[in-house]
Design a protein around this nucleic acid. Structure first.
Lengths: 198, 198
DNA sequence: GTCTATATTGAGATAGAC
DNA sequence: GTCTATCTCAATATAGAC
């Protein structure tokens, strides 16, 4: 049997397994079985498990950044902000594999990997966000505001695991579109336009 | 050698190792070495690795809930809110082991474990928070507001791994006290008192 | 490019001496 | 209560046939 994108098939299967179970909990055998080849075959494509993990992360994260930024075109300020929020939330909620890998990476102590994550997922989108917020919000420190906003979205995705177990939780609390709408309603109150001048 | 709280020594060492490396990446041997006993000895205290993990989580999480709630005494509304925020942030930032275990648990798909986490860490504090926000904020849905607030704090702790790598980040962006202050400044603008009536 | 077979190491776990 | 010794299995990785 030939191997058209066998490398990609391995990366996809490994990404899903790593996302769900963590790197060290997933054996090379399990990945191979998921793909339908023997364990030894993985070593034709990747030198060792370490390289496979690094490759999976590159494969999963590279490019996701651009999608996020691109959505913020040249529409009105408030619309661009809403777009960016909705876009990031959708990414986090719909792409479970990416989200889980992302959160796993957030737990590493390896500075290089955190830097890789920053540069490949955040930096560009974040710079755009800072600019938008600087114009839109009534704040002296748009970078801090962007940090809070991003934190809320990231945290919401994490907390969404807990929310369904809380007393009185409604299903719409974990729907990205509803979250984005509600969040924008609150942010709007903090805009320059609506701000109570100090 | 006797064993005064050997069980606790094991739990402490295991908690730290599990927090830093993940459950499956840490072997019983490594835990035993960290404690200074042999691997076989762990099996005197815990039936198997599964039970050790469960015990570590119980040990780490039980009670943390009360601390958080207790801080919200009978002071003024705004002060109680500020206290709660600062308290939760401090817990997340100062107790690295607890925070890491917490975030690892958030990634499980096991409903029972998420429920355990909800009941032992969140539910009580969260109910209190909902009440406070219902009185303090100009919102129709205090539960949703509490979700957003909690998400921001959780997410901030996670994003704090990224923040130092972002262009233009200042050290105070990852200091719990500064975060709490800044956050309250924003929330205050959304209070009933300051709300722009619609 | 994929396989079978295997070397080697480390894992979880148990038995039984002290 | 802690140890030594050992069992068993699964893991990573390599060699070499096809």
């Amino acid at each position: 049997m030939a191997a058209p994108n066998m490398r990609e098939k391995i990366l996809t299967a490994a990404a899903r397994l790593f996302a769900d179970n963590g790197y060290s909990a997933v054996s090379m055998r399990r990945i191979a079985t998921a793909v339908g080849v023997t364990q030894a075959n993985l070593y034709y494509y990747f030198r060792d498990k370490e390289e496979l993990i690094r490759s999976v992360l590159e494969y999963a994260f590279t490019g996701k950044n651009q999608t996020f930024v691109a959505e913020a075109g040249d529409a009105a300020l408030e619309e661009r902000l809403e777009q960016a929020i909705a876009c990031f939330l959708t990414l986090l909620f719909e792409d479970a594999v990416l989200a889980k890998l992302f959160f796993r990476e957030l737990m590493t102590d390896d500075g290089d990997r955190l830097k890789f994550l920053t540069e490949n997922i955040f930096q560009d989108s974040f710079d755009t966000l800072v600019k938008i917020l600087g114009e839109y919000l009534d704040t002296a420190d748009p970078l801090q505001a962007a940090i809070f906003l991003t934190s809320t979205l990231i945290g919401y995705r994490q907390f969404a695991r807990i929310i369904p177990h809380l007393h009185g939780a409604k299903p719409e609390y974990v729907e990205p579109a509803a979250i984005a709408r509600h969040f924008m309603d609150e942010i709007r109150k903090l805009s320059k336009e609506n701000a109570v001048s100090g």
